[in-house]
Design a protein around this nucleic acid. Sequence first.
DNA 1: TCTCAATTAGGACATTTGACCTATAATTAG
DNA 2: CTAATTATAGGTCAAATGTCCTAATTGAGA
Lengths: 191, 191
Amino acid sequence: MSNNTTRHQIVEAADRLFYQRGYEHTSFADIADTVKISRGNFYYHFKSKDDILEAVIDLRLSNTKGMLNKWEAEADTPAERIKSYIRILLTNWNNIKQFGCPVGTLCTELAKLNHASQEEASAVFTVFRVWLRDQFTRTGHKKEADTLALRVLAWSQGVATMASTFQDEQFVRKEVERMCCWVESLTSDKE
Amino acid sequence: MSNNTTRHQIVEAADRLFYQRGYEHTSFADIADTVKISRGNFYYHFKSKDDILEAVIDLRLSNTKGMLNKWEAEADTPAERIKSYIRILLTNWNNIKQFGCPVGTLCTELAKLNHASQEEASAVFTVFRVWLRDQFTRTGHKKEADTLALRVLAWSQGVATMASTFQDEQFVRKEVERMCCWVESLTSDKE
DNA sequence: TCTCAATTAGGACATTTGACCTATAATTAG
DNA sequence: CTAATTATAGGTCAAATGTCCTAATTGAGA
């Protein structure tokens, strides 16, 4: 599968638009305009809008796994890897301040729509969760690993929501710092 | 202003529907069906959908202030008052697990729509923030009061998002407990 | 009882949206 | 080169949506 196929372009455009405008508020025309294909065309590639959503979620799952693998390779210790996750808040700040967390906001929207792909969407969170759990396990926190993972997710979700509401980068910096210190304090005596 | 006016019924129905289905995904027909009035009727009361949103936000602002006043009267110490806020996660759990936090999810949605009422919506958060700041100030944390207030908001936002994504009540209970302990530890030596 | 303003009902309308269809172009296989 | 498959364009359609308009109903005061 090349990455220049029309299908792939549709999914990438939908990915971006679903994130920036929300799923419901993104129309076929929006996607068609972005990809510069005719409206009717993507009924050749996808049989419905829900179908595109599924493809977008699959793309996100795959991108997420790729990113985690990269962190796994680049960082030497579990603590550093967890910090890689925490720091997305800063590296992706320009997007987050405008559109929030891509994972969290999609899950929230689908919940309100009572959409069939709710579980698929939350699977992206699960990928992060399992990966973070693994990192915590390796630091010796076997029993609480899952709770700690969930805590990191919740923490960054909350910071993202508040930061984007108030457009407060300073708050994000402070909280990221605190979270990193917390991770350090949890893991400093083990390895 | 009576609370039985058609106008008030419209606002209350819209309040609930905007929360449960989202602003964009709630149609005039939905509201009309709920209130059992004709579609055309609320153009007598409101000149547009945005107009209804403003009224809904005003209602939420007013309800929020009422709730804070109640907590102010019922709890004796600032710490207990802060805990009242934290415990909404549990007292309102049935709604939160389905629809998330009403304040946070609206702010997030309006941000993506780039809607004119974004700031009005975030004002609801500000009401909580100022109130929490006051409580922290009274415990002696003058300088960090605002940061602590923002931290409480972020914390509960994150827990709400993750809990509703994974439908995990146990996690909420644990986190609420932790947050309350944290508040206690911050305030135990002052008053 | 009559009047007039406030309120409500319900239809009309232009637009948008997701979906479908058919004709044509491009590409590949034999 | 030809046939067949793949891909794209663009039109059409029904349903839904926000908005507007006008006629009917209500109710209080003169």
